[in-house]
Nucleic acid binder design. Structure first.
Lengths: 124, 124
DNA sequence: GGCGAAACTGGCCGGATGGGCAGGGAGTGG
DNA sequence: CCACTCCCTGCCCATCCGGCCAGTTTCGCC
């Protein structure tokens, strides 16, 4: 591994918002092992805007707690794990999961994370 | 506003290639003013793969039948539904699901679809 | 022909899941 | 004060899930 040339990872910045793009360019410019791409250059990855669409997920009206549970659900956590991570009882975890299934119109926890991911409520 | 604490820019890492994702996570983890997103967290931007390796998902070597099961899994189908849709017995459906959990290194069906989606094996 | 991989089927069992019922406490706003 | 929502907890129960054991057939490859 010592012979690893460790070439810089080339990343292109594809952000519309000038302010955000500028901040990111400044931050990433000082990172060793990383380099911003010249125009037209082949890149390994790109940074794209993940702007919150105002009408995107606002319609779901998930409660803060439900968002917590949903995030853990997306990690494959069981009700028991959710309860431990959130410091609540398994009963309450099941309660929130049930509400999630209802609001997301899902048939099960797997369907719930699929729906949520599809609609951008969570990022896998 | 001048006393703005300059909140960290939250970025989600959405890279299929585990090696590249790991390198980026390491590099970006040490950048002040920047923070990688927790699962499900709202993010300002995302880092996505640019030039995808054509053999990107070839490493998983899922059998054709397993891909069938995986697709149904992503739709929240139960073992019984999978069996009906594929014209096989519930036992066989469970058999394929078990193989999927093993190959995808998942703890459950929900985790399996999350992993598969993250790595681009399936599109939600 | 032998051999491995893939696909398929069966039974069994502990634990997880989902849905139903009931309630209480905290906070907000009329 | 009362109504409302959110969050939390308890119990019961039918079903589902995941993992274990066992077996079969078909196919391609050496």
């Amino acid at each position: 591994m010592s012979d690893e040339p460790a070439p810089d990872i080339v990343i292109s910045l594809e952000i519309d918002d000038p302010a955000l793009a500028d901040r990111l360019a400044t931050l990433l410019g000082g990172v060793a092992g990383l380099r911003l791409a010249a125009p037209g250059e082949q890149t390994a990855a790109a940074i794209v805007a993940r702007s919150r669409d105002p009408a995107g997920n606002g319609e779901f009206e998930l409660t803060p707690r439900e968002l917590d549970v949903l995030a853990l659900l997306a990690e494959g956590a069981s009700n028991k794990m959710i309860a431990q991570r959130l410091g609540i009882s398994v009963h309450t975890a099941k309660f929130h999961v049930g509400s999630l299934l209802d609001k997301l119109d899902a048939t099960g926890r797997t369907d719930a994370v699929a729906h949520a991911a599809r609609r951008g409520v969570i990022n896998l």
